[in-house]
Design a protein around this nucleic acid. Structure first.
Length: 146
DNA sequence: GCCAACGTTGGC
DNA sequence: GCCAACGTTGGC
């Protein structure tokens, strides 16, 4: 899961412990949370749009999916007037801090070893998804690079 | 249903 | 700050 550190960093997650992952407004990203995530699943926490983009730590799925409350809030930047409580459009999970890496496993390093990762959504050209799948093998490989 | 225009993401 | 890539919107 990607986050801009200036908005919400791994350190911020450590401070709060658990964070509702509000604001995802992309159907593919939503579907990963709605359909593929199970409580306790590990999450790679990725810092984007910063000096050294990369994986900075581990979190875990801390809830089953539920409707993102910000979609119903007219005052929120994430308000969606086309959504309703009867048929919510946007779903999310809570994310719990597990641990911060000793260092950032930079995107640059992942790219340099792209052959080791096979088909990896993060490394696909033009990838812009904020929530994307990681295989067990890819996950282990990134942990080994920490 | 096509597709140009537009807005956003995110690396660099 | 630039700009490529991509998703969404809306006119037709």
């Amino acid at each position: 899961m990607k986050s801009e550190p200036e908005e919400f960093s791994i350190d911020a997650l450590e401070r709060v412990g658990t964070e509702p992952w509000t604001g995802v407004r992309n159907y593919q990203a939503r579907n990963f949370m709605l359909k593929d995530m199970k409580v306790g699943d590990p999450i790679l926490f990725y810092h984007s749009n910063c000096a050294v983009p990369g994986v900075v730590g581990i979190a875990e799925v801390a809830s089953t999916p539920y409707p993102d409350p910000t979609q119903f809030d007219a005052a929120s930047d994430y308000h969606d007037p086309k959504s309703s409580r009867e048929e919510p459009r946007w779903w999310m999970v809570d994310v719990r801090f597990v641990r911060k890496f000793g260092r950032t496993v930079a995107l640059e390093e992942l790219k340099a070893r792209a052959d080791d990762f096979g088909d990896f959504a993060l490394l696909r050209r033009g990838n812009r998804l904020s929530v994307l799948p990681v295989s067990a093998a890819q996950y282990k490989r990134i942990l080994s690079m920490e």
